[in-house]
Amino acid sequence: MSKIDHSLFSVQQGGGQDERCPRCGSLLQLRQGKHGPFLGCASYPGCDYLRPLRVIEHDEDIEKVLDGSACPLCAHPLAIRKGRYGLFIGCTHYPDCHYVADVNDQGNSDPLCPACGRGHLVARTSRYGKRFYACDAYPGCRYVINDKPVATACPDCGFGILAERRGQVYCPNKGCGYASKTTP
């Protein structure tokens, strides 16, 4: 009383009816690997020919091509792409060009790091998707702030930056306490 259609499971072990290996002439078999099914030669240790069943397309992750934009490396159009960590801007000529830009970067100048004075505070994303700002001279300087930095010195203590949170600007220097409702 099984409702399973056994004709679905009557596939031969070979890749096709009489599909042969182009190197040695043996039959190709359907095999399973960590990246999915593939066709492999039946005389495997002697012949290592394999062919993926699905051709990997790099156009699958393109969300939208940005009209009027050009890659600074190869001059091909840029596109909004979907990756494992979210959306990013990348070149449409991907396997040959590896240009990548952040979607959230609007081209504004990053404020100078108040801790070291050499690096700039750049936006980063944690592995959990949380946004934070860190010094780009990382191994030497480990300054991090969670709120968006504003390139204005604190009027009370003279700290190099202010931070913005929910429309309020405050001084991130411990012990200062400066806060203002308006953005400077």
Rank of each mutant, 00 (worst) to 15 (best):
residue 128 Y to K: 14
residue 113 C to L: 03
residue 136 D to E: 03
residue 94 Y to G: 02
residue 104 N to T: 14
residue 131 R to N: 02
residue 144 V to G: 03
residue 101 A to V: 05
residue 92 T to C: 05
residue 155 P to G: 10
residue 130 K to P: 01
residue 136 D to F: 00
residue 102 D to V: 05
residue 122 V to K: 14
residue 87 L to E: 14
residue 113 C to S: 03
residue 157 C to S: 04
residue 151 A to W: 03
residue 136 D to R: 00
residue 123 A to S: 12
residue 80 I to N: 02
residue 94 Y to N: 07
residue 113 C to G: 03
residue 95 P to K: 00
residue 146 N to A: 14
residue 159 F to M: 07
residue 117 G to H: 09
residue 120 H to V: 04
residue 157 C to I: 04
residue 99 Y to W: 08
residue 153 A to I: 10
residue 130 K to G: 06
residue 122 V to F: 05
residue 115 A to V: 04
residue 125 T to Q: 15
residue 102 D to N: 14
residue 150 V to M: 09
residue 82 K to S: 08
residue 79 A to T: 00
residue 153 A to M: 07
residue 84 R to N: 12
residue 109 S to L: 12
residue 121 L to K: 05
residue 169 V to L: 11
residue 141 C to W: 02
residue 112 L to W: 04
residue 171 C to Q: 08
residue 87 L to T: 14
residue 107 G to V: 09
residue 114 P to K: 03
residue 125 T to C: 05
residue 155 P to H: 06
residue 145 I to D: 04
residue 133 Y to R: 06
residue 116 C to S: 11
residue 151 A to R: 10
residue 154 C to M: 10
residue 167 G to E: 07
residue 79 A to H: 00
residue 138 Y to P: 05
residue 161 I to Y: 03
residue 96 D to H: 08
residue 100 V to C: 04
residue 88 F to N: 01
residue 172 P to R: 05
residue 168 Q to I: 15
residue 156 D to Q: 12
residue 161 I to P: 02
residue 97 C to I: 01
residue 157 C to D: 06
residue 80 I to Q: 08
residue 146 N to Q: 15
residue 95 P to M: 01
residue 103 V to Q: 11
residue 158 G to I: 12
residue 170 Y to H: 09
residue 139 P to V: 06
residue 158 G to H: 13
residue 135 C to A: 01
residue 122 V to C: 07
residue 152 T to F: 08
residue 109 S to F: 14
residue 128 Y to V: 09
residue 79 A to G: 02
residue 91 C to A: 08
residue 147 D to M: 06
residue 158 G to R: 09
residue 90 G to R: 03
residue 128 Y to S: 11
residue 117 G to P: 08
residue 163 A to Y: 03
residue 97 C to G: 00
residue 165 R to P: 06
residue 157 C to N: 03
residue 139 P to W: 07
residue 90 G to F: 01
residue 142 R to G: 09
